[in-house]
Design a protein around this nucleic acid. Structure first.
Length: 695
DNA sequence: GAGCACTGC
C-alpha cells in the first residue's frame, strides 16, 4: 500500500504526504463504491485531497488496465495544469508521461498517459470524434457545483454515454457543496422526468446527514445507479458576523469595516469582495487616503486591487507577503471566490453582491448586473478566511437579508445565449434538444431563440437538423456561430486570411488594451494610430498586423502602444488553430497580407478589400445590424432598442448610416455595442433575404 | 462624451 511506502518519507516538504490527507482513510470505501456503482458523488471540502488522490487510487487499483485512461475535468485551465503537475510529482513521473494534461493549445500527454487532467470544454470536443469517450474507464468531473456551461453540458452527455457503457464506464462527480442529492437524482432519473424533477422542493440535506451517511447507507431512490460519499476537509472555523442595520453605501461601509478590523483585530490579511473595477479602484483610493491618518508607529495598511482586467504582474502583488509591520487588504471581484486562492487571509468582508451576466432571449441583448449573491456563494466567500487558521467573516448585510438569499446561483445554462451549446449538441448527434437530460432545463425561450439564430445562419434546416457541410463545420470551429458563419463565407469574398485575424482578435474580448496608470488620454491617441474609417474590425486587423511585424520582436512596442502582449500572443494561437480547421475543410488560405511596417492603416490590400471584408461580416452578423440616428446613437432594425457605441469603439465619435456589431451588452441601463463596422443597407437584404424582407 | 463579473473550445 502506498501509505507505508518508504518513498512517502521523501516527498518534498511543499506537499503533505498523501497518507496524512483526510481522504486516505476513505480509500477503501471510495474504491468499493466506484467498483460497485456507475456513478459516485464525492462531497469533498476544501483540502480533502479528492482531486489529487482519487485518480492515483484508481490507477493503483487497476483502472488503467488495457490502455484505458482516467480523465479528470476542471472548469479552468490553470487548475488542470497545476493539479496535473502536482500529481506527476507525487507519482514521481515526468509530466506528460503517466500523468498529463490537455488544454486548448497545449496537449501534454503521450501514449504512456494513464491519468489525464483536462478542461471540461475540451472533453466535450473529444466527444465529437469519439462519441462514447471510449478511451476512458473513469471520468471524474471536478468542481461540478460551479455549474459552468460546459460542466452542465458534459454531465448531460455523460448521462447518455452511461446508458451505452453501463458496465465499463465509471463516473465520479466531485462537488464542494451540498448539491450531491441533485447530482445523484439526475443520473438516477429518466430523461423525461428531469423537467419535473427540478420543480420539487429541495430536500433539506445537511452536512451532518451526509457525513453520517458516509456513502454506506443506501439511498432508496438511487441505490442502483450510485452513492454519495462525504470527505472531511482541512479548514478552520470561521465566525460569521452580520450588520444590525443594512448599509446604504457598501463601498464606504467596506472601507470602514477594513479600518475597524485593522485597529481592533489581531494580525491577518483582509479580503474584501466587491463587484467590479470601478468600485475596487475607488476603495483602494479611499484606503490609501485615510491610511495617512493612522498613527505613524501603528501597523500600516496596504490596499491592493484584484480583478481579471489587471495584467499578470499587477495580479501577482496580491500573493506577495506584506512588508514588515504592514497588513494587506485585497479588494477583489468574484475572481477570488473560486479562481484565485490567496494564503494568509484571516478576515473576509463580503458586500453580498456580484456582477452576473445574463442573456435576454427576447432582445438578444446580454446584461451585466450587480446582483445579490446566493447563500452558497456567501459560504464559499466566508470559507476564504479559514484556510490557514480560524478566521472571521464580516457580512455587510443583516442576518434576515442573508436568510432571503437564494440557495445557489442560477446556473449559466439558464441564463446564457444557447446558440453555441445547441450547435454543439447537434454535432454530437443529439437532435432532440427538448429531451436532452439537462441537470436543470434552460427556459424554452432561450432554446427557441438559439434555434432561430442557428436556422437564420443556415446551420440548421427547417427540421432543425444540422446542415451539411455548413452546420457541421460551424460546430467544429471554436468561435461563436455568427463568426463561424463569417469564416466559412470568407472564401467567397476572397478575404479568408483577413477574417481569420478578425475572428481571433474579436474572441479576445476587451483584453487588447492595457491602460497604464493615469494615462488614459495617451492610450486613446495610441489607439487612433490603428484606426480606419470603415470601423473596428479592420482596425483590429491593423493592430494584429502591427503586432506580428513589430510587436512580437520589439519588447517596447506593446508597452508603447498600450497593447496587451499576452492577449495578442493568444490571438496568434487562436488564428493558427482556426486556420488548421479551415485547411482541414479544404479551404485554401492565401496569406496575401503584406507586412505593413509603417503602420499606414488605410490600405488593406487593394481598394475593394475593405468592402469585401465588411460584406463578409454581414453574412454572419446581419442579426446584429443597427442604424445610426442623428444624435449618434443607434436603433436596432426592429427599431425599439436604443444602442450606444461603446467608448472603446471608433463609432463612438464617427458617423455612419448602417453598421453591424460583434456584441451588445447592457450595463447600468444602457446597451453598448462593441466592435462596430459600417455596412450598406442593401447588403442586409442581399445576404439575409429571409431575415430582412424590407426592400 | 464615457467604460467588462468570470470562464472555455
Amino acid at each position: 500500500m502506498a501509505e507505508f511506502d518508504l518513498s512517502a518519507t521523501f516527498i518534498p516538504s511543499l506537499h503533505k504526504p498523501s497518507s496524512l490527507l483526510p481522504i486516505a482513510r476513505h480509500r477503501q470505501s471510495l474504491l468499493y463504491l466506484i467498483e460497485t456503482y456507475p456513478v459516485t458523488i464525492v462531497v469533498g471540502q476544501t483540502g480533502s485531497g479528492k482531486t489529487t488522490q482519487i485518480p492515483q487510487y484508481l490507477e493503483q487499483a487497476g483502472w488503467c488496465a488495457e490502455g484505458k485512461i482516467i480523465a479528470v475535468t476542471q472548469p479552468r485551465r490553470v487548475a488542470a495544469t497545476t493539479v496535473a503537475i502536482r500529481v506527476a510529482e507525487e507519482m514521481d513521473c515526468k509530466i506528460g508521461e503517466e500523468v498529463g494534461y490537455s488544454i486548448r493549445f497545449e496537449d501534454v500527454t503521450s501514449s504512456k498517459t494513464r491519468i489525464k487532467f483536462l478542461t471540461d470544454g475540451l472533453l466535450l470536443r473529444e466527444a465529437l470524434v469519439d462519441p462514447l469517450l471510449s478511451r476512458y474507464s473513469v471520468i471524474m468531473v471536478d468542481e461540478a457545483h460551479e455549474r459552468s456551461l460546459s460542466t452542465d453540458v458534459l454531465l448531460g452527455v455523460l448521462k447518455k454515454i452511461l446508458k451505452k457503457r453501463r458496465n465499463d464506464l465509471r463516473i465520479i462527480i466531485s462537488s464542494a457543496t451540498l448539491q450531491a442529492e441533485e447530482f445523484l437524482n439526475f443520473f438516477a432519473g429518466d430523461a423525461e422526468m428531469q423537467s419535473n424533477l427540478k420543480q420539487e422542493p429541495q430536500s433539506a440535506v445537511t452536512l451532518d446527514d451526509l457525513i453520517a451517511q458516509g456513502g454506506q447507507k443506501p439511498n432508496p431512490t438511487s441505490n442502483e445507479i450510485g452513492q454519495i460519499i462525504s470527505l472531511e476537509g482541512r479548514t478552520y472555523p470561521v465566525d460569521i458576523l452580520y450588520l444590525e442595520n443594512p448599509a446604504e453605501d457598501y463601498v464606504e461601509k467596506a472601507v470602514q469595516t477594513v479600518f475597524d478590523i485593522h485597529t481592533k483585530e489581531p494580525d491577518g490579511d483582509i479580503l474584501v469582495f466587491l463587484t467590479g473595477r470601478e468600485e475596487i479602484d475607488n476603495a483602494v483610493q479611499r484606503i490609501s487616503e485615510r491610511a495617512a491618518s493612522l498613527h505613524p508607529r501603528a501597523q500600516a495598511l496596504m490596499a491592493l486591487p484584484l480583478y481579471a482586467g489587471l495584467s499578470t504582474e499587477q495580479q501577482m502583488y496580491v500573493f506577495e507577503e506584506a512588508p514588515e509591520n504592514t497588513r494587506k487588504v485585497i479588494f477583489s471581484t468574484n475572481i477570488a471566490e473560486a479562481s484565485i486562492t490567496i494564503d494568509g487571509i484571516v478576515y473576509v468582508v463580503d458586500t453580498g453582491f456580484v456582477k452576473l451576466r445574463a442573456f435576454n432571449p427576447l432582445t438578444g441583448i446580454e446584461t451585466l448586473t450587480a446582483t445579490p449573491v446566493s447563500k452558497a456563494s456567501a459560504t464559499q466567500r466566508a470559507g476564504r478566511a479559514g484556510r490557514t487558521r480560524p478566521g472571521k467573516c464580516f457580512r455587510l448585510y443583516t442576518e434576515p437579508n442573508y436568510q432571503q438569499l437564494s440557495e445557489s446561483t442560477i446556473p449559466e445554462i439558464q441564463r446564457s445565449n444557447l446558440a453555441p451549446v445547441i450547435l454543439q449538441l447537434k454535432a454530437l448527434g443529439i437532435d432532440n434538444i427538448v429531451r436532452f437530460p439537462f441537470l436543470t432545463s434552460p427556459p424554452s425561450e432561450l432554446i427557441i431563440r438559439a434555434l432561430e439564430v442557428l436556422y437564420s445562419l443556415g446551420a440548421l434546416d427547417t427540421y432543425t437538423k444540422l446542415t451539411q457541410p455548413l452546420g457541421t463545420r460551424m460546430a467544429e470551429l471554436a468561435v461563436e456561430p455568427m463568426m463561424a458563419k463569417t469564416l466559412l463565407s470568407s472564401q467567397t469574398f476572397g478575404c479568408v486570411s483577413e477574417i481569420l485575424t478578425i475572428a481571433a482578435m474579436t474572441s479576445l474580448g476587451g483584453t487588447i488594451w492595457v491602460p497604464h496608470d493615469g494615462e488614459k488620454k495617451k492610450m486613446e491617441t495610441a489607439r487612433r494610430k490603428f484606426a480606419v474609417e470603415e470601423g473596428d474590425h479592420i482596425t483590429l486587423l491593423n493592430i494584429y498586423q502591427a503586432f506580428i511585424t513589430k510587436g512580437k520582436k520589439e519588447a517596447r512596442f506593446c508597452h508603447d502602444h498600450y497593447l496587451n502582449f499576452k492577449a495578442l500572443t493568444r490571438a496568434v494561437s487562436i488564428r493558427a488553430q482556426l486556420k488548421r480547421y479551415l485547411e482541414r475543410f479544404g479551404i485554401p488560405i492565401p496569406e496575401s497580407l503584406s507586412s505593413n511596417p509603417n503602420l499606414q492603416p488605410l490600405s488593406v490590400g487593394g481598394p475593394d478589400k475593405g468592402e469585401q471584408i465588411r460584406r463578409c461580416l454581414t453574412t454572419g452578423y446581419f442579426a446584429h445590424a443597427a442604424r445610426m440616428q442623428p444624435d449618434g446613437t443607434f436603433r436596432n432594425v426592429a427599431g425599439g432598442t436604443v444602442l450606444y457605441a461603446h467608448p472603446s469603439s471608433l463609432m463612438f465619435n464617427r458617423k455612419a448610416e448602417w453598421v453591424v456589431f460583434h456584441e451588445v451588452m447592457e450595463m447600468g441601463g444602457k446597451s453598448y455595442v462593441r466592435d462596430v463596422s459600417r455596412i450598406e443597407k442593401g447588403w442586409l437584404v442581399e445576404y439575409a433575404p429571409e431575415f430582412y424582407r424590407f426592400a
